[in-house]
Nucleic acid binder design. Sequence first.
DNA 1: TAATAATAGTCAGAAAAGGTCAAAACATCA
DNA 2: TGATGTTTTGACCTTTTCTGACTATTATTA
Lengths: 158, 158
Amino acid sequence: MAITLATQIENYIKRLLELSEDGSVELRRADLADMFMCVPSQINYVLNTRFGTEAGYFIETRRGGSGYVRIIQTGLADNADLTVLLAQAGDKPMNRQAAANLLTRLLGEEIITKREYAICRSLFAGDALKLAEDREDLLRGRMVRLLLMNLIRDDLSD
Amino acid sequence: MAITLATQIENYIKRLLELSEDGSVELRRADLADMFMCVPSQINYVLNTRFGTEAGYFIETRRGGSGYVRIIQTGLADNADLTVLLAQAGDKPMNRQAAANLLTRLLGEEIITKREYAICRSLFAGDALKLAEDREDLLRGRMVRLLLMNLIRDDLSD
DNA sequence: TAATAATAGTCAGAAAAGGTCAAAACATCA
DNA sequence: TGATGTTTTGACCTTTTCTGACTATTATTA
């Protein structure tokens, strides 16, 4: 299975995060680009598509001399944090990638089952919602919120 | 009667699946098309007509650089009813009441859990889909169909 | 403190896959 | 043979990744 550069970089960063004590890692964008022999903006692409807040990460950067990129892993300590997620979601639209990242995270944290993941993924992240045309992302956002509300309610009831 | 190209491709993929250890193969659509000297969309035809959910397969694809087509052998969960339901569903629109009834039935027959019921009910039978306006019922139909397709898979039971 | 050097960010477009749809070609059967 | 169903093709579309030119910010140094 051929793996893209973006995925290689993603895996590398995740490995660094695992090795780190505090779930955060700091690096130089230019160094990483050198290491993978690509343009620096490729790193931004990876950060934007794989390390967004829905996926459970927080990015801090600084430009200028001795600038850096810091990637911080924000785990869901317990299901109460779902409420925070829900609040963050607001009534905002959500694109496919963000929804897919969120579902991956929920599965990883064992908040949803494999089957729930598969069902939701095909509902949110496939082509189905394209039917809603210009409202696709808005509808997806609303549906994701409904899912979270259900997960929260379920958690409270057992 | 000469064997069709579609059938040759089908057989080839099935042989690959037999040789694979985990019942899944990954390939490039363009490579396969080259190999059989046909247009790429012929591959889609084979996938759609021979490797659908009802036949016990699940297809995953990715576009863009290093894209792929993955064919996963799932077998069928032991519930013949579902396949019938799916066949009946077609690509037809479905109203709220019909969706709610179907969900109740699935819950009654213990095909879905209470939690799955609650999630799907809020997704399908609530107000969310009103956002799709005149396409509400069409979208609901498609979503119900996706749900059934997932339930039919037997590789997701935890 | 003003200039410079060192970082990182943005955005549009090219490249590399795969998807869709309808029409043409072919096959089958009453 | 005519109607109907299946297969094959090709023109056009969408998504994902990668690149590079240009922009913005910050630390350092003259």
